[in-house]
């Protein structure tokens, strides 16, 4: 996987916007340079967690854990939720929240797999998944940016109605995909140099997300809005439009993820994307994104997703049952965040 060196990360709003002196100094620390260093420490500690997990997996199940097949498996399982998490990370950095991601994935995946859509083949399914995701994101964005609704409430409403609509479309039935070109993308024959296409999409979305956040005005505006929306407005940023675009972006990611899920599972079901909102938010948080906005990295979020997927994988390979898995997962979230805090404070003093 292509992971740009973490040292290239910096995102003080002050850096790109010398004209925005009102950006909150309290939250942003003493400057982009110090902040960049801090972000490094966060990602490093998460890489440490990942290394420990790999060691645990390698020791407990050396045969099953340490082979190419398992690496492909972990990355594939991470890819769908990973793409969703990239979109959610943007929203959270801007100080918002998107609780509707799982429901949007469900809606897009069932809409794109109805018998009528499948008539149009590969293109029809891809188009429908992406446009339904965008449309749901647009509704979220309009309600929040121009309707003045709190993101928590607006996306909660979207969660409920998108799930309802998905149920209405499927009537509770599992929609099996019969379009061969879509199904084939999930099979080993389609792997490029041993890399599954889904993982390539995940990598592409990650790189695109990283570039947008760190190398474009759009990215700097996102951080500025999350840091202090009023200051961003005074600095000339159209905060409302920025928010609209961010929820559109999250919807787009959900549409792409829905298409990936269709490829992965060969079907569309209204229960798809169950609890993705929690998984995505948790991954972003342990990846160092501040829930109150203004700070966060794409690499951190992606590492967060990989940590969760690797944990699930190790548990399954060791044949641990769901009860143990859940207890351990909770403990590991707490441990990861505590370790991060500790490292962070160590880095500061």
């Amino acid at each position: 996987m292509t992971q740009p060196a973490p040292s290239a990360q910096h995102q003080g709003p002050g850096k790109g916007h010398p004209s925005a002196p009102a950006a909150p100094p309290s939250k942003q620390g003493s400057g982009s340079r110090a902040l960049g260093l801090r972000v490094d420490v966060r990602n490093l500690s998460l890489l440490g967690v990942l290394a420990v997990l790999v060691a645990v997996g390698g020791i407990t199940e050396p045969d099953a854990f340490l082979d190419t097949g398992n690496l492909q498996l972990i990355l594939t399982q991470a890819s769908v939720i990973g793409v969703v998490t990239v979109g959610v990370t943007f929203v959270i950095i801007s100080g918002g929240i998107d609780l509707s991601v799982g429901a949007m994935v469900a809606l897009a995946s069932v809409w794109a797999t109805t018998l009528a859509t499948q008539e149009y083949g590969f293109a029809g399914i891809l188009f429908t998944a992406v446009v339904v995701g965008l449309a749901a994101g647009l509704v979220n964005g309009l309600l929040i940016a121009y309707g003045g609704m709190v993101p928590f409430i607006a996306t909660l409403a979207m969660l409920a109605s998108a799930r309802g609509l998905a149920l209405q479309i499927t009537d509770g039935k599992t929609q099996i995909v019969t379009v061969r070109s879509v199904l084939d993308l999930g099979l080993p024959d389609s792997y490029v140099l041993g890399i599954p296409p889904l993982v390539l999409v995940f990598a592409a979305v990650t790189v695109a997300g990283w570039l947008i956040l760190n190398r474009t005005t759009f990215g700097r505006r996102t951080v500025a809005v999350g840091g202090n929306a009023e200051a961003a407005r005074l600095a000339g940023i159209d905060v409302r439009r920025q928010r609209l675009y961010l929820y559109l972006l999250s919807g787009l990611c959900c549409g792409i993820a829905a298409f990936m899920l269709i490829i992965l599972s060969g079907s569309g079901q209204n229960t798809n994307g169950n609890l993705y909102e929690l998984d995505a938010i948790a991954a972003a948080i342990i990846g160092g994104t501040l829930l109150s906005g203004g700070r966060g990295t794409i690499i951190g979020s992606v590492l967060g997703v990989l940590v969760f997927t690797t944990i699930t994988n190790i548990f399954a390979l060791n044949n641990l049952q769901s009860d143990v898995q859940q207890i351990a997962k909770g403990a590991i979230i707490v441990a990861a965040v505590l370790v991060q805090r500790r490292t962070l404070r160590g880095g500061e003093t």
Partner: peptide, 15 residues
């Protein structure tokens, strides 16, 4: 769910 069936079965096959 289909999604969980795919995910858990993939892990079982690997194990």
């Amino acid at each position: 769910t289909v999604e969980s069936g795919q995910a858990k079965m993939a892990q079982l096959l690997q194990a």
